[in-house]
Write a protein that binds this DNA or RNA. Sequence first.
DNA 1: CTCGGCAGAATTTTT
DNA 2: TTCTGCCGAG
Length: 783
Amino acid sequence: MNEFDSDPFELGSPAAPSPATGANSAAAVPRPAFLDGLNEGQRAAVEALDGPVLVLAGAGTGKTRVLTTRLAYILTSRRAFPSQILAVTFTNKAAREMQERIGTLIGGAVEGMRWLGTFHSVGARILRRHAELVGLTSNFTILDTDDQIRLIKQLLAAAEIDDKRWPARVLAGQIDRWKNQGLTPDNIPEGEAFSFANGKGREIYAAYQARLKVLNAVDFGDLLLECLRLFQNNPDVLTYYQDRFKYILVDEYQDTNVAQYLWLRLLAQGRRNICCVGDDDQSIYGWRGAEVGNILRFEKDFPGAAVIRLERNYRSTPNILAAASGLIAANEDRLGKTLWTDDQDPGDPVAISGVWDGVEEARQIGEQVETLQREGHLLDDMAILVRAGFQTREFEERFLTLGVPYRVIGGPRFYERMEIRDAIAYLRVIAQPNDDLAFERIVNKPKRGLGDATLQTLHRTARAEGISLARTAETLIDTDELTKRARNSLAGLMEDFRRWRGQVDMMDHVALTEMVLDESGYTEMWQKDRSPDAPGRLDNLKELVMAMEAFENLAGFLEHISLVMENQQSDNEDKINIMTLHSAKGLEFRTVFLPGWEEGLFPHQRSLDESGNAGLEEERRLAYVGLTRARERARIFFAANRRVHNLWQSALPSRFIDEIPPENVEIRTEQGLYGGGFQEGPSSFDRDYGTPGWQRMQSAVKAGRYQPRNNRWQQYGHGQVIDAQADLVTTNDPAATRFKVGERVFHQKFGYGAIMAADGNKLDVEFEKAGRKKVIDKFVEPA
DNA sequence: CTCGGCAGAATTTTT
DNA sequence: TTCTGCCGAG
């Protein structure tokens, strides 16, 4: 068989227990203590070791505990070596956590769990071992989004496609989606193939794949897709892994995409000991290709599968649980679970506050945070969960002025910062001279007089010769193709790289990196830079160097950064957490603030536009995830007005607010806010914004004719539907005068014109001189 | 080749 | 409002 079969680390460390050879020897092992304290469902999920198992685990029902306990149980009952268990998660954090918790259960770290990781890291691991079989070598590079886009941009240019009309990032996204669905260029559905650049999408995709092979590189999607191809074309390899993985465990199964699903199904067909844990109500990554369908068809793919429901919630108060359950019940497309709790104290109702604008929202939340803090709560126990990244700003500003320490989780990632990527590009070129994308990135950083012209020549020659840019550079140094200046500069750079490469085995990679950053002039470039963010960038570079110390060598470090694009900020200070709802999945807090529950923002307009009802349901699941993060207190806010990119938008309260059962809710909006006479509110506010959303809800609640679900626009309508929609419309200022179609207006830049159409604050104006333009009403005045 | 100015776009979620 | 990317001038 192949060489991979005789891998020395195949069968775990010598200290590992020998696996049981027969069913009876498992019984001989004493029942481990960690099985005590599990409830009935949990125990069933842990002990059902033979055959396929699907665990439907609601929020807060001990999902992770089941998964880790099951894994620990497999190990201590000696059914498998650590190296014979495949355990996949979506995030590195989840993988790490599982690793740690197993260690705690078993007592001491587990050696040899090398198949515990994210789908992507496991895929990469497999792919590296068999790289030649898919046309790569084992030191292939893993490209990130930025590299992908730049590569695609080049291909678009080569194909003479206008990347203004057909942006590279769009195609990159499309290719990603194709890969998530397990689609190679030759089996893209006809319709989709033509959706980009009049049918060139498929061609570019194919060219992109070809280019990746030349670069000896893969992108994220390939880590799974190429793995699939490997398995399909090499039955012996597949059989090997099917045989090896005695047990397969999958976390967050509801988030798997088609490619991951196929991958799992292939691997599980051998031993059929696959256990998937998930919650269809927490499926929030549909936009990224996740297929809730995977969870629904599990029983079909694995006939005789045990399906275990975990419905007992250990996290939230009855009020919060009821609120969340009531909300999610509005979704039609779900397996359906009923969470329950033994807790006798109903806890605080979910507080709902309406505020004037985003600033006020931040002010109130800040106040409540301080109050809780005075009552003895830790900031660490509180979180603000927002729908979209830009919402964090308002809170950061507020906490900054209040002097309340906060941390933003998620946000721009360390390894995605420009200076870090540049530094890494240097290292990549050292590790792999043929890494064209990295080479291109740093060839003129710092400025070396190697600009566009030089690069074009390099590219042209490289393509003609079929070799990499770096090798082309070496040849061109000895010709007259380039200007003397460029030639000298390039020669110097290549010489530098040669020297650095010679040091790889001689010196430690941390010192090497410092040397490279220094000798290349990269550090100096930032030192000379006068822009305000330059010092921060230098700090980041230092941090990078420090981070490298945790790795054995350069290759190990490079692998890490391509697969672990997360921020792991470790600080022990007591801080309030600010993050998006997506990144809050899996976490819990005593108190959760949920701002921005407004139509358009949450549910997000784009979700509705792009995915219709499915999009709405996913947004609702997101709301459900948000609520169920709270242990003791959940507080929802919505603002009547919000400034987004310097435009004022007004909005209705989110429909999700209406969907929470009124008996679990407490309305906290001050009297008068919507009644009239709000000090800053323009007069139109009362008339236009006072009525539909808020009062509809309030009166509905009061009158007891509360009916969540289904199209309430009509239900409470009485012709208000139109009013309500007018409210959704954006205005740059709530007080702004609205224009009428046909009205003559004047614009500073375009001159006089007539309004042809009006859509909220957006006007379609036929200007006498400038022609027809779309303008914001703020910029025109009545003529 | 570099720099500066200008126009236009962008704002969801991420392995 | 801020960032990016393009274009033209030096």
